[in-house]
Write a protein that binds this DNA or RNA. Structure first.
Lengths: 214, 214
DNA sequence: CCTGTTTTTATACGCATGTATAATTAATCT
DNA sequence: AGATTAATTATACATGCGTATAAAAACAGG
């Protein structure tokens, strides 16, 4: 058996685990705080350990940030994906998906703000982690687009690109919503729905260069 | 005459002007460097002045950042707008505009990377400055959309939202291109063109909720 | 109980930052 | 020439950071 969780080890047992540090880091991240601004000492302080003890659990602060991003991404993908697949009436899937997405801005876990606050700044490992999560979002959306199109008998011309356009636009609008009060968020949802439907409509007929501007 | 440029003042003349500080700041900003990471001492060092002298020209480092963002925005809007208006064949305006945009990633002034690196992090004044520039981009694009649609006899259903969707998507894709080698950038342009045409196509017929997914 | 092993901690160093204070410099005005 | 005025500078302080080093603490095996 390799590496059991309750393996008896030799030396002094860890007073804390990776999970505790992650929790401490999350407790520091409000909706306005970016992961990139977390410092090693700050996280250690919140976790109740000495600064140097951090290194026993993560090689550096970037590794923690990447870990947080990955966790946020996979959690959100499950939430959003489940919601999307549970929607039956296809004519409301756009609006409902967008509303659910925006609702996640206020979720207790704070995962969506975490992901949105990292534009494209920070270390390389950092940006790649965010980008990877966005690509996963795109992949799953593409699958759902194909599923919906097959079930309702319409075509999607460039499903991967349609999924990309939708994903990127949703995240950009979500980022904008992050700094807005609820009232403005509502009309941002309305605007987003219209914009998303433009993409979906436009993806439903094949493009000829001459046809795009008649 | 109020406040002439060559006004004789009383005390010791400034050894340096706002412009020099702006130049110094720009010299520090490579394509990978975010404005938010500039420090007061660093800029002062590059400008050849003592740290405290900075305060004679800007109230704080954020004011300089906002100034840089505004300058980058207005310069780019002129470049992009001029290019768009100089394009005559409407069937290639999308591709050409996108290509010109991406070319600006390597422009000497470095204004586009400057704007792209500021996702939505930093101080409020900061984010608002970026957002304001994006809104200006949207406004000008909307005008051009209306001009083109009038000239070629087609309709754009929600011109403001179409302009917003296009602008935000272009900026997101540009941000992605920022970290890519030329080869990947070329296919990113191709993908972007397809996505943008989806939006434009989708904006050309009015949306009914039932019609979006037949 | 002693030894080895591993984690944790305390202490400390060097560095960079923003900014407060007072002195210095260079110009104009009387 | 001397006073005035404004910009620059030198010096210094407190803060926070990452991390290097060595000592202390908590466990298992002998």
């Amino acid at each position: 058996m390799p590496d059991n969780a309750v393996t008896k080890r030799r030396g002094r047992p860890p007073a804390i685990g990776r999970e505790d540090i992650i929790r401490a880091a999350l407790s520091l991240l409000g909706p306005q705080r970016s992961v990139a601004t977390l410092t090693l000492r700050e996280v250690a302080r919140a976790a109740g350990i000495a600064p140097n003890s951090f290194y026993r659990h993560f090689p550096d602060i970037d590794a923690l940030a990447v870990c947080l991003i990955e966790r946020a991404g996979s959690t959100l993908r499950r939430i959003i994906g489940d919601a999307r697949r549970s929607l039956e009436r296809p004519d409301s899937v756009v609006r409902m998906s967008m509303e659910i997405f925006i609702e996640q801005l206020d979720a207790d876990d704070g995962f969506l703000p975490l992901l949105l606050r990292e534009g494209h700044v920070g270390s390389d490992a950092f940006k790649q982690a965010v980008e990877a999560q966005l690509c996963h979002f795109e992949d799953e959306l593409q699958q759902d687009l194909l599923r919906l199109s097959a079930a309702h008998g319409f075509v999607v011309d460039h499903p991967a690109l349609a999924a990309r356009a939708i994903t990127r636009l949703v995240f950009v609008m979500g980022t904008q919503a992050l700094d807005q009060p609820p009232a403005q968020r509502r009309q941002l949802v309305e605007q987003s729905v219209v914009m998303l439907r433009m993409i979906i409509d436009g993806a439903q007929r094949p493009q000829t260069q001459a046809a795009t501007l008649p």
